[in-house]
Nucleic acid binder design. Structure first.
Lengths: 216, 216
DNA sequence: GGATAGTGGATAGTGCTACTTACTACTATC
DNA sequence: GATAGTAGTAAGTAGCACTATCCACTATCC
């Protein structure tokens, strides 16, 4: 397969493919001559993965490069790989200074204890959650912190599905990482979309007729 | 309150506040002289809202300007406002051409019917969900589409909490929009974070010891 | 009462990201 | 043998979210 065919098979413009190869997101083709190379289904697959992660997962080129280099490096242990993959796509944003993060941290720790989850204070997701809780207090939305348990129950339901999807077969590295990465990054967007659709329905049910939280 | 105090109260640098005022995200101060103006708690509050939405909600300046201008316009009907707010923060991304969107659309419509939700084919969240489903098929993750019902059940749980939070009192416009906007935008990130924390726990339970999907 | 730091308002510049364009020397194909 | 395409590389671009600099003016401290 030549580059034009690769481009046609994926819908990604040729210069963009060149850019991705340069950035290490997609492996180079197998050279067949001084200025000719051969691409295969693996390239098509990888390219579609990159597009999905970028379009629906919102991952940056730099994050994806990290991920793909880990994936292409056979030295990396499989289970570290999955954990690392999960952490890589969880960008940690520290709370703005001046915020009361201690109270938020304690609230989250208590929630984690109530649910019987593991408390991992340095996990980027933990740091993000703490930042959000602190931020919600700042903005005066303490009521949202109070219903945290409801959100946590839903999150656990989602996570159970995620783990079920991963299954037992972790022998295919590329496949396993794909499951984790797509499931997590694209899954976030999917869940957000489903949430909005459900919201629209429930809003109409709660505030019927012209009172509904819907235009028109 | 002068600009330096407003900056100190919110942690937002003075030039950034000026930029936000220029962009219409924050109303100008009440002028008290040729080059002096007065800011109050409303400005502090608005500034914190903007920061939260940007930092944790990932909203762009342009989207927030839209939102804030709606909020500051007394012509807008309250319930339209809420629906519009929800749609504004849901960026719709159309599927890349060449993808089989018809099949994905039908799958989603069936899911919506199974759950008794309203089918709103033009809602941006619907369009996004269709794009994701098509994309998942493209990447060969059909198994993820199969467990859609589990995700939808969790999404409904979240949406029920959202609506409960909104409550009955929709008289305070700014407050109601804040609830919807923060709840939705920041809530997405919060749920994503909780999901990852739950995943880490469940992964360890499913793949114990060194097999856990966690590095160290 | 005079130095100094700060003010609102405006324009221009910065750093970053994700591509695009343009170019070169070469090659497959009609 | 003309033409379109190829790999590889360097330079350019568009958009975003600020940030810096400037201006005439003003509040405040010593």
């Amino acid at each position: 397969m030549r580059m034009a065919e690769l481009s046609a098979a994926t819908g990604v413009p040729v210069p963009t493919i060149k850019y991705y190869v340069r950035e290490g997101l997609v492996p180079a083709g197998r050279p067949t001559g001084r200025n000719q190379a051969d691409y295969d289904d693996g390239h098509v697959r990888r390219l579609k993965l990159v597009r999905s992660l970028s379009e629906y997962g919102g991952l940056s080129i730099a994050v994806m490069r990290d991920l793909m280099q880990r994936l292409d490096n056979p030295e990396e242990h499989d289970f570290d790989l999955l954990g690392a993959a999960q952490k890589t796509i969880t960008e940690h944003r520290e709370a703005s200074p001046g915020t009361d993060r201690d109270q938020a941290e304690q609230e989250l720790a208590e929630l984690v204890a109530r649910r019987g989850w593991r408390w991992e204070p340095h996990h980027p997701a933990t740091r993000t959650a703490i930042g959000i809780l602190a931020s919600l207090h700042e903005v005066g939305r303490d009521d949202m912190v109070e219903v945290l348990d409801s959100y946590a129950a839903a999150a656990e339901l989602i996570a159970e599905t995620d783990i079920r999807l991963l299954g037992d077969d972790l022998t295919d590295r590329e496949r396993a990482v794909e499951i984790v990465v797509i499931g997590t990054a694209v899954g976030d967007t999917l869940i957000a979309a489903l949430r909005r659709i459900a919201q629209a329905t429930l809003a109409r049910r709660t505030y019927p007729a012209e009172r509904a939280g819907q235009s028109r």
